[in-house]
């Protein structure tokens, strides 16, 4: 057995317990190469102890517990399926609150933006109403001499000032 074959056998020992003849072959090789004895024996010893590690105890009802878990899982799936809405419903449920929210925000924005404009038009409207009330209370006869009054207002104010000065003592 050469070095490569020994390496292969040792690697085999990682995966499976070696047969008696394989171990015998290795022992023969070790006798011929005593310097490697400790290394090879340690390698085989580790493989041996790993392969002999005891199995964990399996409960007697392992299989029935698996079935119970499968049934529980199926029931949970059914419940979640019955609770989960259809795709149209989910779209509806998803988008209606968003649309409602969007509309609410839009409405509030419009109202806020329109607030000053409404105020000025209200003021104008109330002014017009007051003027209309005032106009209703005036006598039309008052406006008969309107032209004369207007002409007086356009007369030269300098003459008036001169007359006033002459009359003063």
């Amino acid at each position: 057995m050469n070095e490569l074959e020994l390496k292969q056998l040792l690697e085999d020992s990682w995966k499976r317990p070696l047969t008696q003849s394989e171990v015998g072959t290795i022992r023969d090789w070790v006798k011929a190469h005593p310097a490697r004895q400790a290394e090879v024996e340690q390698e085989l010893a580790l493989s041996g102890v790993i392969h002999r590690l005891p199995d964990a105890p399996v409960s007697s009802n392992f299989n029935s517990q698996v079935w119970q878990k499968i049934e529980a899982s199926d029931r949970a799936d059914q419940r979640s399926r019955s609770r989960s809405p259809s795709s149209l419903e989910s779209i509806w449920r998803r988008w209606v609150p968003r649309l409602a929210g969007g509309l609410a925000i839009l409405t509030v924005t419009i109202l806020v933006l329109k607030q000053p404009g409404d105020g000025s038009s209200k003021q104008a409207a109330s002014g017009l109403a007051a003027a209309a009330v005032q106009a209703e209370g005036l006598d039309p006869a008052m406006f008969e001499d309107f032209e004369a009054i207007r002409t007086l207002a356009e007369s030269d104010t300098a003459l008036d000032v001169e007359l006033l000065a002459a009359l003063q003592p």
Partner: peptide, 23 residues
């Protein structure tokens, strides 16, 4: 696997000397 085995060998060295585990 090799590195894991090397670590185990280093840790278990005193216990693996017997040769009792050869087979």
């Amino acid at each position: 696997i090799f590195r894991g085995r090397e670590t185990l060998k280093a840790r278990l060295k005193p216990y693996l000397k017997t040769g009792d585990w050869m087979v």
